[in-house]
Simulated assay, not measured.
Amino acid sequence: MRLRQLVLAVLMVCLGATWIGASPAQAAPLRAQSVDVYLGGVDLSGYCRTLGYQGAKRIGQHGIGDWRCYNASAEASLSVISACQWQFKPLVAAGYPVTAGTNGDSAGEWKCHATAGSTEFYRSMNLAGFCGSIGYNGAKHTGDNVTGWRCYLNSGATIPLDLHAACTWQHAAKVAVGYTVVAVWESYADSFKINCRGAHA
């Protein structure tokens, strides 16, 4: 009887040591959900001009690598991903990955994308209101596609209109709660169809 009690006591001590020393089960690490932030068209000519070239041109009809930066005497390969990252610098600065993709194998269908926790789309822009907020009399379009917008003074002076800054101003309430807001368009010719999109971690 005493032997049985001794064995039971030893077992209880061993089990107690196991429970006390056991590590808790490790929960799987939480993974932040991410969504594709569709940013639309990319200003390839504007990007090439920042590199010292005249603009961008397509040298083929079907390949996704058919775009080149060019000037009168030279051509150079063009990284559309780098162009998207240049165009959407506010998103890059905020830590969002920015990349590019095509619609199938069509060289003319390059679009920019980012990855974020959530995204919102804000239709239309108040460009005249933004220009007024920085001391100008209004906004006008000079005919150079989406990049042709200017803030103007009645005296005739103009400055290029920063579309990203206009979106940030127009949607200041969203910026205040952590959104990064940028200007987006579908096509380089959509001068009067520019909208804003917000990204949040």
Rank of each mutant, 00 (worst) to 15 (best):
R2V: 14
R2M: 12
L8R: 11
V10D: 00
L11E: 06
M12A: 13
V13N: 09
L15K: 14
G16C: 04
A17M: 09
A17G: 07
A28I: 06
A28V: 08
V35E: 13
Y38N: 05
L39C: 07
G40V: 02
G41K: 02
C48M: 03
Y53E: 06
Q54D: 08
G60Y: 10
G63V: 04
G65N: 08
G65Y: 10
D66M: 04
D66E: 06
W67M: 08
W67F: 09
A72H: 09
S73I: 10
E75K: 14
A76V: 11
S77P: 07
S77C: 03
S79E: 05
V80I: 14
S82P: 09
A83V: 10
Q85R: 12
W86H: 04
F88N: 02
F88T: 00
F88V: 04
L91Y: 05
V98I: 05
G101C: 00
D105P: 05
E109V: 05
E109L: 12
K111H: 05
A114R: 02
A116F: 01
T119D: 00
F121P: 06
N126M: 07
L127R: 03
G129H: 00
F130K: 01
G135M: 06
G138Q: 12
H141L: 08
T142M: 13
D144K: 13
W149Y: 11
S155E: 14
G156S: 11
L163T: 02
Q170L: 09
K174R: 01
K174M: 01
Y179Q: 07
Y179N: 08
V181T: 02
Y188P: 01
I194D: 00
C196R: 05
R197Y: 02
R197H: 00
A199L: 02
